[in-house]
Design a protein around this nucleic acid. Structure first.
Lengths: 349, 349
DNA sequence: TTGAAAGCGGTACCAC
DNA sequence: GTGGTACCGCTTTCAA
């Protein structure tokens, strides 16, 4: 009995036979960088491939070539507009470069991130992009670095997005500077009494933003009282809860609440409202990121803009550029303060 | 001169040598379903793998096994919360099943979708999930079906998300029924004069929703005047523009504007506001999807809820369940009307 | 240019 | 149980 075909899939072999040429020729006609194939044969192969509805088996190609066409992207939470915008940029750039992107979510857990990187290495992607917010987790960091270094040793490229201190290429977002500029702008508008809703203490992005903001204020001799800084978990619900806590403790004349990102800020606005405090009238609110929706909440949110889509595109571009010895490993993207109705010119109250 | 190693990557060969066992044994110890390997050897192999920091080359494994561990997901626009929520569900389900998900975006173009499916077949994924909104595009549909059938013939699984009439498994979202129920609820609240902002005419999701809504009204003898139905392109900006157009034409006593999805509705609220019309007070607004942010806009948006994350998880579950001859190919997810402040009990006006 | 054949990294069947 | 080895589908020398 003839062995049943494992799959009904047509292989390069079938195409070659159909076209009446050798395997090698078929391969060259379909891909071969050096166009060393007779145009007559080439046509026959192409026709055969079309007729049989052939598609190259990328896995087999990867094994033979020793390199894949995939890009692995790690994000903290794909449903978060911050990450999905970056992802859109990475995907766009990858498609333009003929690369496929695989996506995993870390849930912002350093442990999960490490696990994923380990598993991803099996994919032998050309690039691993880590966009999940870096945390100052001391426990898993050395292992992560070790995995990534092994990956690079095997010819892969690693790119981080956002701030970090690890020995890899980075698309750096100036969280500190952006927040600091925001603080200064707000002081100029006349605000003098602030509160802040932060992320988890371990998230570097969150701490950098808070540091920038407080330093910006400090430059004008302003300080945020310790009891006016509350955690917000980097999520909408965290922002809501943080604002409620702030309200319940008593605003004590706070004129502006700074949230470490827009999602938190939007949650905070709802939280304030739930306590009868009207954002933009009773108290000003500012966020960070300039995600799409901040234009459509009421009042429109003052924030710090980051070109997120471009960040994603840049991350890929950085990964694809040749690795030169002495080249700068970091690429910085600019941030910009965007003042909107949530911080009216005249301080609330 | 010895040939330089193509890569610095460690292979199963290296592990086997390090452990002093055969390639076959190493393979079995690391993966082998039948646990036919001596525990002593197994330990040695595991230790060697760990020591060498070995990871299985998934491509090679795929070639040898004849099947991959990847799931291909096509979405219309990953930065749209509708899609990113579904994607989150697909990713979660995949990770639980040990599968990797690759993601592509169609930009809602049937042509691009066809191209992508063709390219994706080369990946030989276990599953292709098409979550991009189906369009009634007659031109590319036959080719798309042909590609997908070829893919299934090769052992792959195809799952569509949302409504369609194609011969593949589907996670069906009751767009028609949900919109109809919404219409009836609104009539009950006392509304009698409606306008609508739709998507592109070709998007089946958009037309289904509009049909459900108008039929729901018709059941109560209410009709939307033709000039009160404007296109909104399924995007925030489209919604904004649509609302502006509606306002500029004159609302003529319209009490409620129905937008075919939340993103459009949110844009529409801003559009109305830009014309001095206050949503929820001067005119009610309703959307569809119940994406996260609708709770945080002002007024909170009335909409039709879809369990988007679960839709994503279900799509994967459907793909993974054994294919039985007579089994139902469709899975329906329920929708639910969610009334919020954007449609106050007493009709606006 | 073209074809034969030796890999690429694994898997799985076969015999011992 | 374990090792030898023939593949998996494709690329790429090497001769012809």
């Amino acid at each position: 009995m003839p062995t049943a075909r494992r799959t009904a899939t047509v292989t390069l072999h079938d195409v070659a036979r159909e076209a009446g040429v050798s395997l090698a020729t078929a391969s060259r006609a379909l891909n071969g960088s050096s166009r060393t194939v007779n145009d007559d044969y080439r046509q026959r192969v192409l026709a055969a491939a079309l007729k049989l509805n052939y598609t190259t088996n990328l896995s087999a190609q990867a094994v033979a070539k020793g390199s894949t066409t995939s890009v692995a992207l790690l994000v903290g939470d794909i449903a978060d507009p911050y990450f999905s915008s970056i992802a859109a940029g990475v995907i766009k750039g990858s498609e333009d470069a003929g690369l496929i992107v695989t996506m995993s979510v870390t849930d912002r857990s350093p442990e999960r991130e490490l696990e994923l990187v380990r598993a991803l290495r099996g994919q032998r992607p050309r690039v691993i992009i880590l966009a999940g917010s870096r945390s100052s987790d001391e426990e898993h960091q050395p292992d992560l670095v070790r995995e990534l270094e092994a990956f690079e040793a095997g010819g892969g490229r690693v790119v981080f997005v956002s701030q970090h201190e690890l020995p890899f290429d980075t698309v750096r977002i100036d969280n500190y500077g952006g927040a600091r500029a925001l603080a200064e702008s707000l002081v100029e508008l006349g605000y003098t009494r602030f509160a802040a809703i932060t992320g988890e203490a371990a998230l570097i992005t969150a701490t950098d933003r808070l540091a920038g903001f407080t330093d910006g204020l400090a430059a004008h001799g302003i300080e945020i009282p310790a009891d006016k800084i509350v955690p917000g978990g980097f999520t909408r619900d965290g922002g809501f809860a943080g604002a409620v806590e702030l309200a319940d403790r008593g605003l004590d004349g706070v004129e502006l609440v700074f949230a470490v990102n827009d999602v938190v800020a939007i949650g905070a606005m709802s939280g304030l409202r739930s306590r009868g405090i009207e954002p933009g009238r009773d108290v000003a609110v500012a966020g960070f990121d300039d995600i799409q929706t901040v234009r459509d909440v009421t009042p429109a949110l003052t924030t710090v803009g980051i070109p997120l889509f471009e960040v994603g595109e840049s991350a890929l571009a950085v990964a694809l550029r040749p690795r030169e010895a002495g080249s700068e490993r970091d690429l910085s993207v600019p941030t910009s303060v965007v003042l909107r109705a949530s911080t009216p010119g005249v301080p609330a109250r």
